[in-house]
Amino acid sequence: KDKDLLKGLDQEQANEVIAVLQMHNIEANKIDSGKLGYSITVAEPDFTAAVYWIK
């Protein structure tokens, strides 16, 4: 199951987060929520590491 990592990002921010996570071998998903911006989700086992790397 995926957990929400970040919400309300613009496309550039979302792409930067995806890139950082991929560099650390964390699979992440970018979801277009329309006017609400983009959300990033990661698998539950990767959540703690993902939070660490996006600081």
Score class of each variant (00 low, 15 high):
Leu36Val: 06
Ser39Ala: 09
Tyr38Ala: 01
Ile18Val: 07
Ile31Cys: 06
Glu12Gln: 12
Glu44Asn: 05
Leu36Trp: 13
Lys3Gly: 04
Ala49Glu: 11
Trp53Val: 09
Asp4Thr: 15
Trp53Lys: 00
Ala19Ile: 09
Thr48Ile: 12
Gln11Lys: 11
Lys35Ser: 11
Lys1Ala: 11
Ala14Met: 04
Leu5Val: 09
Ala50Lys: 02
Asp2Arg: 15
Gly34Asn: 03
Val51Glu: 12
Asp32Gly: 10
Leu6His: 02
Gly8Leu: 06
Ala19Glu: 08
Gly8Glu: 05
Thr41Asn: 04
Asp10Lys: 08
Val20Asp: 04
Lys35His: 10
Lys30Asn: 03
Lys35Tyr: 10
Tyr38Cys: 06
His24Cys: 10
Glu27Pro: 13
Gly34Thr: 03
Asn15Ser: 06
Asn15Asp: 14
Lys1Met: 10
Ile26Pro: 00
Asn15Gln: 07
Gly34Pro: 04
Val20Gly: 03
Trp53Pro: 03
Ala28Val: 05
Gln13Asn: 04
Ala43Ser: 11
Pro45Ile: 14
Thr41Ser: 08
Lys3Ile: 13
Phe47Gln: 02
Ala28Asp: 02
Ala19Thr: 07
Ser39Ile: 13
Lys1Asp: 08
Gly34Leu: 04
Val51Thr: 08
Trp53Arg: 01
Ser39Tyr: 09
Ile40Leu: 03
Asn29Ile: 12
Lys30Ile: 15
His24Gly: 04
Asp46Val: 07
Ile18Phe: 06
Asp32Thr: 06
Ile54Gly: 02
Asp10Trp: 04
Val17Cys: 08
Ala50Phe: 03
Val42Pro: 00
Ala49Phe: 06
Leu5Tyr: 03
Asp2Pro: 13
Asp2Ile: 14
Gln11Arg: 12
Thr48Asn: 13
Trp53Thr: 03
Gln13Ala: 11
Glu27Leu: 13
Glu44Tyr: 08
Gly8Phe: 10
Glu44Gly: 09
Ala50His: 02
Ser39Cys: 11
Pro45Tyr: 14
Asp2Ala: 13
Ile40Asp: 00
Asn15Phe: 08
Asp32Asn: 11
Val20Arg: 08
Asp4Ala: 14
Asn25Phe: 08
Lys3Phe: 08
Asp4Lys: 12
Leu6Arg: 03
Asp2Trp: 15
His24Arg: 05
Ile18Asp: 02
Gly34Arg: 03
Lys55Pro: 06
Gln13Val: 07
Lys7Met: 11
Ile40His: 00
Gln11Leu: 15
Lys3Gln: 07
Gly37His: 06
Asn15Ile: 07
Asn15Cys: 12
Leu21Met: 03
Leu21Lys: 00
Pro45Val: 14
Lys30Met: 14
Tyr52Gln: 11
Lys30Gly: 04
Ala14Ile: 04
Trp53Leu: 09
Ile40Ala: 01
Phe47Tyr: 12
Leu36Ala: 11
Asp2Thr: 14
Leu36Cys: 14
Ile26Trp: 02
Asp10Ile: 05
Ile26Gly: 01
Lys30Cys: 13
Gln11Trp: 13
Ile26His: 00
Glu44Phe: 09
Val17Tyr: 11
Asn29Val: 11
Tyr38Ser: 01
Glu16Ala: 14
Glu12Lys: 12
Val51Gly: 05
Asn29Phe: 11
Lys55Gln: 13
Ile40Ser: 00
Gln11Asp: 12
Asp4Tyr: 15
Lys7Tyr: 13
Asp10Asn: 13
Thr48Glu: 14
Ala28Tyr: 09
Asp32Tyr: 14
His24Trp: 05
Ala28Gln: 01
Asn29Cys: 10
Tyr38Pro: 00
Leu6Gly: 02
Gly8Tyr: 09
Leu9Asn: 01
Ala49Ser: 10
Ile26Leu: 03
Gly8Gln: 04
Asn29Arg: 14
Val17Phe: 10
Glu16Phe: 15
Ile54Glu: 03
Asp46Gly: 03
Ala49Met: 12
Ile40Lys: 01
Trp53Gln: 01
Ile40Gln: 00
Glu12Tyr: 09
Gln22Cys: 11
Gly34Cys: 06
Ile18Lys: 03
Gln22His: 10
Ala50Trp: 04
Glu12Trp: 12
